[in-house]
Amino acid sequence: MKKNLLSTAAAALALILGASGCQDTVNTVENRDLAMNPDSVDTRAFSTDSFCRDRLALISMRRSKTPGGVMMVQAQIRSERYGFWSELWSGMTGTNPYYVLYRFDWMDENGMAVSTAANAWQPLIFAPGEVKFIQGVAPNSRCKDFILSVREDPSAR
């Protein structure tokens, strides 16, 4: 009886380790003394999806101008779905890699949203621990304010 219990526990442990060992996480290294002098954007977030909020981390939000004088923003986002339990859970639920959609909306100086083809939801696929840069370009030079929306991709579930 005791032997059976031990065998079951060993098998379960092997299964868990096996499942978590199947993850393809991304490891990064960067130069410590950064030469860049980015123009960071102060952000305020309105989060309605606690899963998405916990699974993705906004590392930085920067802005710059294109040669044509149009505002451009860049969000640096990292998938936080690494570590033993996260990897185990995402492996079991088949949500690795993590599929999300993002969209930039731009407002002109009067606060009116300007619609272009770039307003569409765009897919993004994250491996655990992966860092991605998503860039949005304002439709014209009158647009200075933006909203970045991120959601899980329901079609990938």
């Binding site: 294109t66 040669p67 569409a120 765009q122 860039q135 949005g136 370009v137 439709p139």
Partner: peptide, 16 residues
């Protein structure tokens, strides 16, 4: 189409 168009628009406008 939506994805490609959005990427193309961003790239074109950003290029100046």
């Amino acid at each position: 189409w939506n994805d490609v168009a959005a990427r193309a628009v961003n790239s074109l406008v950003a290029s100046g």
